[in-house]
Nucleic acid binder design. Sequence first.
DNA 1: TCTTGTGAATCAATTCACAGCT
DNA 2: AGCTGTGAATTGATTCACAAGA
Lengths: 216, 216
Amino acid sequence: MARLPVYLRALHVLAERGVATVSSEELAAAAGVNSAKLRKDLSHLGSYGTRGVGYEVEYLVYQISRELGLTQDWAVAIVGLGNLGRALAGYGGFASRGFRMAALLDAQPGIVGEVIADLTVEHIDDLETVIKDNGISIAVLAVPAAAAQPVCDRVVASGVTSILNFAPVVLSVPDGVDVRKVDLSIELQILAFHEQRKAGGPSGVEEEYLEAVEGQ
Amino acid sequence: MARLPVYLRALHVLAERGVATVSSEELAAAAGVNSAKLRKDLSHLGSYGTRGVGYEVEYLVYQISRELGLTQDWAVAIVGLGNLGRALAGYGGFASRGFRMAALLDAQPGIVGEVIADLTVEHIDDLETVIKDNGISIAVLAVPAAAAQPVCDRVVASGVTSILNFAPVVLSVPDGVDVRKVDLSIELQILAFHEQRKAGGPSGVEEEYLEAVEGQ
DNA sequence: TCTTGTGAATCAATTCACAGCT
DNA sequence: AGCTGTGAATTGATTCACAAGA
């Protein structure tokens, strides 16, 4: 379930504050969801609460971490070290529990060999070897749109089965490979849509299109 | 609808290739969705297809753009110019149709005054003035977790009603303000979850927790 | 008494399947 | 003949509301 990481974060905050026990109501508020939904989500992992009391924070942190697979260590590679790739390599959240930045790959001669966040950027020609040697199972693609599908094919052929894609392309992958997509301009477009709604919606007249076409 | 931007992107690709007309089946495949879903989504904006033929690419691009509010110009501010903020400022997709990077804001003396992507970074103390003077309606928050809620409150008080949040925090905002969240470590955690599923799921034994607790 | 865990009810999204138009 | 637009059917997610347990 895609909400477990949000609960986990809220629980970490509570744990840091020294809170030992939390009710579904409180945790739901912290995570920004309905309390019935939260209870249903948690009950799906097993019965880890105590009626009349709530959930023990530490224990729940462990159970959710285990469910998410964060009690083991995942080796991650970033492919593409432009602005975005660099930001990702330096991003603290990645290095946090459960993930290990294991390799950086790029195609540009000027970038290969550079040291970023304690790792030397390797040439993408060596992609297959690097992925196998480092036991990498998750690849982050921060490459240009045109390169995304070919690079994707290569990482999949090398054994990667989970991909986080920042390129604005719909990747096609074989069954059994998971792709998650983060598309910054799509996020902005969705905001623009809501923004426009607030302002009264599209004007809805045909002339506008004709004008726009004329104007070219 | 959150899928319109994806259709729009696919249509732009088709338009560049000189394709004049497309069927729901083809467009759905390009966007990675079911064709009935695509038709329902599009019919929701009006009746822009021709039975027996398909959709006219150019016309559909225009209609979706209008629906999304991309026929007008949105002024965007980025708050926080660490690694991620810089990557966003330089990201081409933002500057594309419909969006104008209008201001950059940060709190650190070393960063304020720097020129990034043709804009001078301004001090966050001037946030209210900068937002009002530039008519900014969308703010991108790339600040540390602890700063996110206070900054959010200030941009909202200044009139911003759409926020793209990269900080790992659940923001609370008044009704009428839209927040979209991009959380890189949550994306990785979701991938780890699926990755673990493929590997056989969590081992499900109590001892593991006890060991983990002992080990501290 | 307080809070979980969960059947039942509701609400929304997806898919099917085909009538109707070109 | 081919493809859209859309009722109807299905599937899934969310919420309600309360019985059962601490």
